[in-house]
Amino acid sequence: MKNLIKISIIFLLIFIITGCGNIDGGRNSIKNDNSVDKVIDKQIANATSSASDVLEQEPIMLTEKSLDELLKTEKKTDETKSDSVDYDLTEMSSDMVYAVVYHMMIDPATYIGKSFRIEGLYYAFYNEPADLYHHYCIVQDAAACCAQGLEFVWDDGTHVYPDEYPEDNTKVIIEGTFETYHMEGDSNLYGRLKDATFLHVF
């Protein structure tokens, strides 16, 4: 009987404690962008975009000018592919590529001024506060669960996005020289490939 009373009291206390919680405060402390929400949002976005694509039959993203330019670069690449770069990541296994890019981010000083050739998926990211697009070459490890993005600046950065760039998730090979930089009002150190060229767009 005593045990029953004790258990009842414990249950009551638990109910009281949970009941007295500030619902709003709790909600605020939890981020809403958990994976379930993200997946649902992504599915909805995909469904909407594919439906609108069918209706509007939107044409290709690359303009003729940019496509020509890309193809020219590609030709140039074939001619110059034998030229040596300091780090040719296209010759490495996926584990090694991921590890090298990871170490570039952890210890950038070792890699500053070195030239890189890298194969990965092109991805553009819009930086809202700075009102500019950052362009990345994404590499994945063998398990395809870890991904690292290496930022690059195509030539002098004057190319227009999205007209001249490939679509997101396009497989590309790029080549450039590694440098570090600071964003205005941000103390973080970032790394990227400057004077980059598209060697190949798959």
């Binding site: 584990d95 669960c145 991904a147």
Partner: peptide, 17 residues
Amino acid sequence: LSGDVCSTLFGSTSILT
């Protein structure tokens, strides 16, 4: 998130990093 969880569960390339 899935990458973080996957690399912790299966090791992935953490030994190389």
